[in-house]
Design a protein around this nucleic acid. Structure first.
Length: 1004
RNA sequence: GCAGAAGUGGUGGAAUUGGUAGACACGCUGGACUUAAAAUCCAGUGGGCAGUAAUGCUCGUGCGGGUUCAAGUCCCGCCUUCUGUACCA
């Protein structure tokens, strides 16, 4: 006995860790804290594939390393367990999403446990657990009860705002609010009805209910946030998205736009991720300008005076305005359109509303628009400017209207050219007959009254001053970021703690939370188009009994209807990292002591796909919680690393498209699959048809006669004569040979297919690297790897694949190298059993001092591994371990002095084998908190160096010299050396470069 | 279009401030052990040329220039691939 029985060893230690709560973090500790967090997993039905644990393994190594370094490490894990897939599955099967979610979590847990992570499971949270979402609802109420003060630049309780309104109205209040908020005095305010007051306060609350234009996805039956839409279709499922007006809860994230930008300076996140947040927030500096619409006396439609507000980044070009364009959805469109233009405008508005976002994006080339018949007055020249509508102007950005300056903007230029609108030139010495002049750095303004001859900056300044003097504009900063829609018309999410009294939302008292999700008989919207919660029969709030009661009791006096929407996926994941600090606290979100002790996350590992969604919302909520005094910190994550995706190597069987189309159609066509090596060879050697014919004839002679004539062509083979059909990678071995029977069983439609094989009888698939996913049949499961090679091998191999941040394909071929490394490591601690046979050996370490060489190996390994971990370069430390074990094996090292620290060094990477060896070495307890071996430079001190000697930069030979020589002595020694003279062949060197301890270069 | 990252053997990848390019591993080739296979162990392995050989020469880090005694690494100009993002006024 003493082979490396990894299965037994791993099961033993996983059990030990669980029973002894080895990785439980303390909220009170003398040791310094360190918080390592992983991406919050959504427990999908497909389970984990080998790509998922990559980041978890890296963070686990780091967490374990930090424990060896004496830190109190918080390394929790939990589940983001609300979400669409479970609900879609529920709709299809009728199973409660709670049930499938729990099953999926159980499977995830089993898989995670097998890999040997050092999670503190006592802190597990699940977003779908009422004890957890109670606090999500609580945060929602805090947001509802807050407004944003733009002077102090922080969120404050709404009660303070009411006090201000009581005493001075809203005229002097500096707050973030809806753009249509009207001004009122204290007197007005006090005269308002309670309902009117509530209506006004909604315009200030950080979460508010409003009629907003949303992205509606009919197939998913819900609205989506901007970051949930990719290329105009839903991120999940890829369904079309249309624009629709709905009453929705929104989050006033725009209040935090500037702070979300500024905060990026303070955190150590990858630049690309910061860049994408910066772009998403989209800050641009310019001015808002108000244009007065010229009343049209002949038109009854234009009676009132209207104004159009626009945002521009180029106030300096204001004299170049030759028309204005409104988004088709703009409120003014119906009000200013003249009767003559009415039909045409209405047709255009209707057509553009029907166009999905995707269509609009797909065709950016087509220029379209309609003249409204109305004119606006230029603020300086007073000239009339025609007002158009066009869908190149987006309703959602700025004010949904632009002052068009065709000479200085490509889109305005295209529009003007297309509709023959004049293009006045306001740039000095620039030809705009072919294209606009968009370069603001080299602008000199002309034909522009009081700003002639000025550059961009000067002109902008002057124009803003002039606009302010006229009361028709001001300098302004605009953000692309929109308020985030927070309602989803779905079942499987957090219920809002909200009921409606006269249509006005009311919060349920904090002491009555959680408001738990009701039961429904179906997970679909109601026939009336209400969300699934509309099907719940017990879903009304009794304000006297303070409980949820049957809908029949609704009287709108004491019993009121509850909100039917649920919260989006990001609700539960925006503050979870803080709840881990005190996850079982029933009285508060987390105790002040716990929040203050742990602060924020020191290291987070996750993919870059959450850049503009989850990671932005998390920063927003954290800043909000900070403002309201709950969190000491205002950023959730100090350092963030994006792990690269592990890609799958898909396998394809190549179907020969031999072009048969008999009278009865393609369905009769027999599938012929051709082994990939034959195809490659055929293409290379141009032996296409004859080879296939011969092979086909052998296997299925009837086919030749059946398809006679079509097999005889002498066309030159090419790849496009073959269609790659995906084959499950589990049916393919390391030699790319397909298990044909297994393939046929999985794909019955090919059970009669013909397989043209290699001469040796094998069938070779072609390979392609793609994203790993169930739909591509290229998923590799970690469980099988753990079973076959062990978790320690899996952990080390995932790290060995390459740099953490880089995307890389998974290829199981290399895993044997890592596995045999662990076997060699094991062997190092064992010696042949006396009188035994073969590889039978027993544990053995000697107490004798280690050799100088072995100590050198150990210490250079300590140095390198420590540096690697701190630089997150885990792939290189795996190589370092291999080198160390190879060297120690060669040195026949069996000394405890070296082998004991070696086990500690390797334990973050391969914890199970390290624990086992640690125990065999006679130690008590877990290796996990043993101090990391100290590096001692004295073992690396050398007395001589084998210098590479170069001639004109090319290394020719090596020369061993003592390290204590001066450069002059080195030069002397080199020049005296035979080989030097041989190289020089009598020439005298021009120069000799000596870098002591590094290199010698002889020039000449 | 814009922004970012990356291009090194048959493959994954090393090379920390410019200083021996290809560490480590896979794969492949040869050998040992075995009836055989697996496993294990040993040796070799960037291309080309010369040599029986030891060895020597030469070309080589996407392409073209440059700086330097010395460039995968620094500078300038291109090419390709990937990843975000896109009518943002």
């Amino acid at each position: 006995m003493s082979k490396y029985h990894f299965n037994d060893i791993e099961a033993k230690w996983q059990k030990y860790w669980a029973e002894n709560q080895t990785f439980k973090a303390e909220n009170n500790s003398e040791r310094p804290k360190y918080y390592v967090l992983d991406m919050f997993p959504y427990p999908s039905g497909a389970g984990l594939h080998v790509g998922h644990p990559l980041g978890y393994i890296a963070s686990d190594i780091y967490a374990r390393y930090k424990r060896h370094k004496g830190f109190n490490v918080l390394h929790p894990q939990g589940y983001d367990s609300f979400g669409l897939p479970a609900e879609q599955y529920a709709i299809q099967t009728g199973q409660h999403p709670k049930k499938t979610t729990e099953e999926n979590i159980a499977r995830y847990r089993e898989q995670l446990d097998k890999i040997g992570f050092s999670f503190d499971w006592s802190r597990e949270v699940r977003t779908s657990d009422p004890n957890y979402y109670k606090w999500t609802q609580w945060i929602f109420i805090q947001l509802f009860e807050s407004w944003y003060d733009t002077i102090e630049d922080k969120a404050k309780p709404i009660s303070e705002l009411k006090t201000l309104f009581d005493s001075e109205g809203n005229t002097k209040v500096n707050a973030v609010c809806d753009s249509d908020t009207e001004l009122f005095s204290a007197k007005d305010w006090n005269a308002f009805s309670e309902e009117e007051k509530q209506q006004i306060l909604l315009k200030y609350r950080l979460t508010y209910l409003a009629e907003t234009e949303v992205n509606w996805c009919p197939q998913l039956g819900t609205v989506l946030a901007n970051d949930e839409i990719v290329n105009g279709v839903s991120e999940r499922g890829g369904y079309p998205v249309v624009r629709k007006k709905m009453k929705q809860w929104s989050m006033r994230i725009t209040a935090y736009a500037q702070r979300l930008l500024d905060g990026l300076e303070t955190i150590d996140w990858p630049q690309p991720l910061k860049d994408s947040q910066t772009n998403w927030i989209g800050r641009s500096k310019g001015a808002s300008v108000t244009f007065n619409v010229i009343p049209n006396v002949t038109s009854s439609a234009v009676e009132k005076s209207h104004t159009i507000e626009v945002f521009t980044t180029r106030p300096d070009t204001i004299f170049g305005v030759s028309f204005m364009t409104l988004a088709p959805e703009h409120d003014l469109v119906s009000k200013i359109t003249t009767p003559e233009q009415k039909d045409e405008i209405e047709a255009y508005v209707e057509a553009s509303a029907k166009r999905s976002e995707r269509e609009r994006m797909a065709d950016v080339k087509t220029i379209s628009g309609v003249f409204t018949g109305a004119y606006a007055e230029h603020p300086f020249t007073g000239k009339p400017i025609p007002i158009w509508i066009g869908d190149y102007v987006l309703a959602g950005y700025g004010t949904g209207a632009v002052m068009a300056v065709p000479c200085g903007d490509q889109r305005d230029y295209n529009f003007a050219k297309h509709f023959n609108i004049p293009i006045p030139n306001i740039f000095e010495g620039v030809d705009i007959s072919e294209e606009p002049f968009e370069d603001k750095e080299n602008t000199i303004i002309a034909n522009s009254d009081f700003i002639n001859g000025l550059n961009y900056a000067e002109a902008t300044q002057k124009v803003i001053e002039a606009l302010e003097a006229k009361g028709q504009g001001e300098g302004k900063i605009n953000y692309r970021l929109r308020d985030a829609v927070f309602s989803r018309q779905r079942y499987w999410g957090e219920p809002f703690p909200v009921y409606y009294k006269n249509g006005m939302p009311q919060m349920i008292g904090l002491e009555h939370l959680p408001l738990t999700l009701p039961e429904v008989e179906k997970y679909l919207p109601t026939e009336e188009g209400e969300p699934p919660l509309g099907r719940a029969e017990v879903w009304a709030w009794d304000t006297t009994k303070k409980e949820v009661v049957h809908n029949d009791l609704i009287d709108n006096k004491t019993v009121f209807p509850l909100e039917l929407n649920t919260m989006p996926g990001w609700a539960g994941s925006s503050c979870y990292m803080f709840r881990y600090m005190d996850p079982t606290n029933e009285d508060v979100f987390a105790s002040k002591e716990a929040l203050d002790y742990w602060g924020n996350v020191d290291l987070y590992l996750g993919g870059s796909e959450h850049a503009t969604g989850h990671l932005l919302y998390t920063r927003f909520w954290t800043k909000f919680m900070h403002d309201r005094g709950y969190f000491k910190v205002d950023e959730p994550v100090k350092k963030l690393i994006n792990q690269g995706m592990i890609l799958g190597e898909s396998a394809f069987v190549n179907r020969w498209e031999y072009g048969i189309s008999d009278n009865e159609g393609v369905s009769k066509k027999k599938a012929i699959f051709i082994s990939d090596d034959i195809i490659k060879r055929s293409i290379k050697e141009e032996i296409f048809i004859s080879e296939f014919n011969n092979k086909t004839k052998e296997i299925y002679s009837n086919l030749i006669s059946f398809h006679h004539g079509l097999m005889l062509g002498e066309s030159i083979p090419s790849r496009n004569q073959f269609t790659p059909i995906p084959a499950d990678v589990s049916f393919v071995n390391l030699q790319n040979e397909l298990d044909i029977e297994a393939f046929k069983n999985r794909r019955p439609e090919f059970k009669d297919a013909i397989f043209i094989k290699e001469d040796n009888g094998s069938f070779i698939v072609s390979r392609e690297v793609e994203k790993m996913s169930k739909s591509k049949y290229n998923v590799v499961n970690p469980d099988n790897i753990c079973e076959q090679y062990g978790a320690d091998t899996l952990r080390m191999y995932e790290m060995f694949l390459g740099p953490l941040e880089q995307a890389k394909p998974w290829n199981t071929a290399g895993i044997t190298g890592v596995h045999s490394f662990l076997k060699k490591l094991w062997k190092l601690y064992h010696s042949p059993f006396e009188g035994g046979q073969g590889d039978v050996s027993e544990f053995f370490v000697s107490e004798n001092p280690a050799s100088k060489d072995s100590l050198k190996t150990l210490h250079k390994t300590i140095k390198k591994v420590q540096e690697d971990i701190e630089n997150f370069s885990f792939n290189t430390s795996v190589s370092t371990f291999m080198i160390a074990v190879n060297e120690l094996t060669a040195q026949k090292c069996n000394s405890r002095e070296v082998l004991e620290p070696l086990a500690v060094l390797i334990s973050p990477y391969a914890p199970h084998i390290a624990e086992e060896l640690w125990e065999k070495l006679g130690n008590e307890g877990s290796i996990s908190t043993v101090p990391f071996p100290a590096f001692d430079a004295k073992h690396l001190v050398e007395s001589s160096k084998e210098y590479p000697v170069s001639f004109n930069g090319k290394m020719r030979f090596k020369l061993e010299l003592p390290l204590d020589l001066t450069p002059d002595q080195i030069e002397e020694a080199v020049m005296a050396y035979d080989k030097t003279q041989e190289q020089l062949q009598g020439r005298t060197p021009k120069k000799v470069i000596v870098v002591p301890g590094k290199i010698i270069n002889i020039v000449g």
